[in-house]
């Protein structure tokens, strides 16, 4: 009976994510003060260097850990609160580690009027993100919106780790994620 099929599938909660088990790259959580030394050698220790330093740390560790913020504050002779203030002000910085694939859904005006929110919803559904969370439990995917990627003619646009995908539809989302997972599986 087709009715049974629908309900059994749903009740088991089978989603594509569960079927493909992906090996997650371990996120570097231990902050290496040596790395900061190297960055400081280039940027110097003036207050103006704060944002470039945080950018370098964010780039390497994919987030700013409490430890990192403490180290930066003492190196620049700033209060931890000042560094924390800057870290939370700018959208580029995140205090939580981001996923292996950072998916940015452009929600600029052009993308918005051409349907970026249905794409965003489809993505969240596909990678199984619930409530207000933006990163999956296995740290595979981070799905977030971004104001404008400046590629409005391709609206709606998403980027996955800076690779641009244009004219994305909610259906295309599945194809894109399938491809990523196949690549991941091949990689293993």
């Amino acid at each position: 009976m087709w009715i049974d099929k629908i309900f059994t599938n749903e009740s088991k909660g089978v989603t594509p994510m569960d079927r493909t088990v992906l090996d997650v790259e371990t996120t570097e959580t231990d902050f290496d003060p040596g790395f900061l030394e190297g960055v400081l050698a280039e940027t110097g220790t003036s207050t103006a260097a704060l944002i470039p330093i945080l950018q370098a740390i964010q780039g390497k560790y994919r987030h700013l850990s409490q430890e990192a913020i403490h180290h930066v504050a003492s190196a620049l002779r700033l209060s931890t609160a000042t560094v924390y203030g800057v870290a939370t002000f700018y959208a580029q910085f995140s205090l939580e580690p981001k996923g292996k694939y950072v998916i940015k859904v452009c929600d600029g005006t052009a993308c918005h009027v051409r349907g970026s929110i249905p794409v965003y919803d489809a993505l969240r559904k596909r990678v199984n993100l619930q409530d207000g969370r933006s990163t999956t439990d296995n740290r595979m995917y981070t799905v977030e919106t971004v104001a404008c990627l400046g590629a409005c003619v391709l609206a709606p646009v998403i980027t996955i780790n800076d690779q641009v995908y244009g004219h994305v539809t909610p259906d295309a989302v599945n194809i894109i994620i399938d491809t990523l997972e196949q690549e991941g599986a091949q990689h293993d």
Binding site: D107, G108, T109, A110, C111, A147, C148, G150, A151, C152
Partner: peptide
Amino acid sequence: DEGDPGAFMDR
């Protein structure tokens, strides 16, 4: 810092 959503001239 071209931040207006829907603009890409400066870029």
